[in-house]
Design a protein around this nucleic acid. Structure first.
Lengths: 337, 337
DNA sequence: TTGTAAGCGTTATCAC
DNA sequence: GTGATAACGCTTACAA
């Protein structure tokens, strides 16, 4: 029956004894105007042959696809995979297919990916990940996305502000400020901040937000490191080596860094939550399984993905959705009294 | 310059003053047989216009795509996203595009997705996730995949044995047996096993593997629960309520369950690693950040994704790659003496 | 309601 | 080398 080629609409039409046009109408078009008997015949033939419409052919005939293209830095990172889950969920509701590309943190690769994606002629391109400020490819990326948009596509950026496209952002600055206020309210005064290089926008926003709520207090100690668990571990180790001094709490700009820092402190004999407070950002799942449970700032990642899709399908080309970040106090920062 | 339509090869050809055929050859075809001067002209025109080839059009003209379709149960689950990362990495090397669909644990949805995916005419379909044994759609799914294959596609299943396709499996049985032997070697004799319903193949294999290495010892207590952190928490709570008795160690069939169980034990005043040993399976990142660090069985998830791609592109239609699972002893199961 | 035929944006097969 | 032109699988006027 089969010999290396998928059945086409022609095959179905022949099998059903009708024309391709009728077959097409029965299978996909507004099936209202095809006689019930014929429609059944066509559907039966399609089932018998195991026919599936060729999406590429449909795309080119109709001039549009039902595809959403998503660019992330790393699927294995819970930050991005949560967003991806949200996008997928929202897309499914509208019968859209998500194609996902991984940029791997390189701006060049990201640019290349957006180019390729454009070839897919998706309805929507969603780019997520904090752009490295000053990357040489920034302007080219904007050009590429702008070209895509003038050709009728919709662009939504997650967590990248100040670009002329639809945007979903998370209130990193405000969330960090709220965290700082909460910690001050709990009696903490002297902090150390573990942050990534300021070119990483997310890190910078959180760092600055934290500082902004500390007016009048002694400026925190700042330790620059990687945006990873290992980075957090290392920075905390450095902190212990140089002497913790009067530092009462450590704020790491994300949870995996904070968790790494907790382990480093513990390794050095300092007990998180007793000898020193620790707080992170993102509120990933593990916060409640480490000991003590980690104080953090919850960011609605999945919702960011959903919002991005909603924005993409809305009328508003340059809409902006700003998602709140909310403080979650846990045992790693007990009230200091 | 633009007004709602992406430039086509025609536009580029006109702009460059050559025929579409030449433009096509210069941009994609074997550029050997086009005069250098013309080739440059075409490339320049393409750049000027911001042209990107319409992948769907290419697909239909060439009769093949450069797409790999991946089906997972949940992107946000580190188990699947790690595999996805491996697939993505391997695909990138070969210039293939990955489209990812989320089945959300429902066999019906999974079937529907495979159908849709077939419409994309991908080179490869990779289905990952432990099939629920006895799901009513099982045969239909096989039919669908078989139809796809006879039409020239390649199918690879990750972690699903006994199906007539290429397969990548992880040695759940062997890994669990090795873990049991290691624990026995450390002096443990009486166990409780936290497992999911046996219809979930992965859970059953791990459970059975664990038992297989315990011949001659008293049969472990078995507690059935969900395959999630909450499930682990709940089962451990039940264990404590019914009385731990002489149970010396708890084996949970995955790490998140084990971590949930540790938290439940701690909440009940039983100290993991001191009062009772705890072990999991998967060796997810968090194992080293919980206290005490969790003993587990490492499974090369990312590598599974890479292997799947390799298998898909190999000559061997029904090849099988079996990945080892290796025991990692940590502080949650200290030697019992 | 149905069929014929003209696209859609490419590539591939021819002649030239 | 290059340019017409016929595919590719589908949708959609336009006629019948």
């Amino acid at each position: 029956m089969d010999d290396g080629a998928a059945p086409t609409l022609h095959d179905v039409a022949r099998e059903a004894g009708v024309s391709v046009a009728t077959a097409s109408r029965a299978l996909n078009g507004s099936s209202r105007n095809v006689r019930a008997e014929n429609a059944d015949r066509v559907r039966a033939a399609a089932a018998r042959l195991g026919y599936e419409p060729h999406l590429s052919a449909q795309a080119i005939a109709k001039g549009s696809t039902r595809t959403v293209a998503l660019v992330v830095r790393d699927v294995a990172d819970p930050y991005f995979s949560s967003i991806a889950a949200g996008v997928g969920q929202a897309a499914e509701r509208d019968g859209l297919i998500v194609t996902m590309a991984v940029a791997g943190g390189s701006p060049e690769r990201e640019l290349e990916i957006v180019r390729t994606l454009r070839g897919q002629r998706p309805r929507v391109i969603i780019v997520t990940g904090s752009r490295i400020d000053g990357a040489g490819t920034r302007d080219e990326l904007i050009d590429e996305l702008e070209a895509y948009r003038t050709a009728g596509g919709r662009v939504v950026l997650i967590s990248q502000r100040d670009l002329p496209f639809g945007t979903v952002t998370i209130d990193n600055h405000g969330g960090a400020a709220a965290l700082a206020r909460a910690l001050v309210g709990a009696g903490y005064r002297r902090f150390a901040v573990l942050h990534a290089p300021p070119a990483l926008r997310t890190s910078r926003d959180r760092h600055e937000g934290f500082l902004s709520a500390l007016q009048g207090l002694p400026p925190p100690l700042a330790l620059e490191t990687d945006f990873t668990r290992a980075g957090g571990y290392d920075a905390a180790r450095r902190l212990v080596e140089r002497g913790i001094g009067d530092v009462e709490a450590v704020f790491a700009v994300n949870d995996v860094m904070a968790i790494g820092a907790m382990t480093a402190l513990r390794d050095a004999g300092v007990v998180p939550g007793a000898g020193i407070g620790v707080a992170g950002f993102d509120d990933i799942a593990s916060t409640v399984d480490v000991v003590p449970a980690l104080t953090s700032v919850a960011v609605p990642l999945r919702e960011a993905g959903v919002s991005a899709m909603r924005l993409a399908l809305s009328d508003d080309e340059l809409g902006e959705t700003r998602l709140p970040a909310t403080v979650v106090l846990r045992d790693s920062t007990p009230p200091l009294t």
